[in-house]
Simulated assay, not measured.
Amino acid sequence: MISSGIAAPPEKMMFQLSLRRRGVSDRGVLQAMEAVPRDRFVDPIHRPNAWRDTALPIPCGQTLSQPFVIAYMTEQLQIQPKHRVLEIGTGSGYHAAVLSRLASSVVSVERFRTLANAARTRLRELNYANVEVLLADGLALPDGQGTFDRILVTVAAPELPQSLLDLLDPDGLLIAPIGPANGRQTLIRVHRKGDDFVRKPLVDVRFVAALPGVAREL
C-alpha cells in the first residue's frame, strides 16, 4: 500500500483488513479497491455503509456487490496494464472504476438507461477517462466492439452464450456467474486456449439475473 502521509479513515483501514483476511492478496487489486471512492457510487443514504463488506442497493432493482466479491473476481482476472477489458453489467460504475486502475481500457455495458447515464457521469466526474459505458444488451453486443483480453460478467445466466466467448482473445480470461436466477450460481473462470475454452468452477455466488435487450423505461 502506498502511503500518502495522511492517515486513512478507520472504515477504510477495516475495509482493507477485511479483504486481506478473506484471502485477497494481489497488491494491485488491493490498491485499486482502496483508491476508488466506493461511497461516491451509492446514494447518500447508503454512504455510511459503503466501506462495509456488504452488498448495497442501487436504482433499477440492481445491487452493488460486496467488496470481497468484487476484489475476488478482479483478482481472478489477472489483469495486466496492457489489457482491454469488457464488463457486462455496469451498475453504479464502481467495478468499472476498479478495473480501470488495472487495465489499459474498459468497455462497460449496461441495459438500464438510468444506470448507464448515472455511471457515465460519475466516472467522468471522478476522472476515470479510460472507461466507456455503452447502453446495450450485454449478452448480445452490437458488432464493431472488437475482442477483449479479459471479460467480466456481473449478471447470472443459465449458460454462457457463445457470442460472448467469441469476444475473448486467445489466452484471454472470462469470469461469470452461471446458474438459475433464484438458485445456486457458480462463479466460473474460462480460459481461452486457441479454439478451446477451458472452464474452472470457483465459488458459489448470488447475482441478479441477466435480462435480454435494453430496458425500455429505466
Rank of each mutant, 00 (worst) to 15 (best):
T54W: 06
R40D: 01
P81N: 15
A103H: 00
I79Q: 00
R40T: 01
T74E: 00
E87M: 04
S108A: 14
V107A: 11
A119T: 06
Q78N: 15
L64H: 01
L126N: 06
S65P: 08
A97N: 04
G93W: 00
E125F: 07
I79H: 01
L86V: 11
A103F: 01
F68M: 13
L64G: 04
A116D: 10
Q76S: 13
N117G: 05
H95I: 13
A55S: 15
A96T: 03
R52Q: 02
S65V: 09
H95T: 15
P81G: 15
V106Q: 01
H46L: 05
R40W: 00
N127V: 14
S65R: 05
H46I: 09
T121D: 15
A71K: 04
S104L: 06
I58E: 00
T63E: 08
L56I: 10
T90E: 07
S108N: 03
Q62E: 07
I70P: 00
I45E: 11
S104D: 08
V85S: 07
P57G: 10
R120A: 08
I58H: 09
I88K: 03
H83W: 04
A55Q: 12
S92F: 07
A50V: 03
V107M: 14
A71N: 08
R38M: 09
N49Y: 05
R111V: 06
R120W: 09
I88S: 08
A50S: 12
F41W: 04
G61L: 07
T74K: 05
L102N: 03
L102G: 02
F41L: 05
R38A: 01
Y72Q: 05
M73K: 09
H46R: 13
T90D: 03
A116Q: 12
C60R: 13
I45P: 05
P67R: 07
R52D: 03
R120C: 03
H83I: 07
T90C: 12
V85T: 13
Q80L: 12
R47I: 01
V42I: 11
D53V: 13
A119L: 02
G91P: 03
V109Q: 06
D43S: 07
A55D: 08
S105G: 10
Y72W: 11
S92E: 00
G91L: 10
T121Y: 14
S104R: 10
F68N: 03
L126W: 02
N117C: 12
E75G: 09
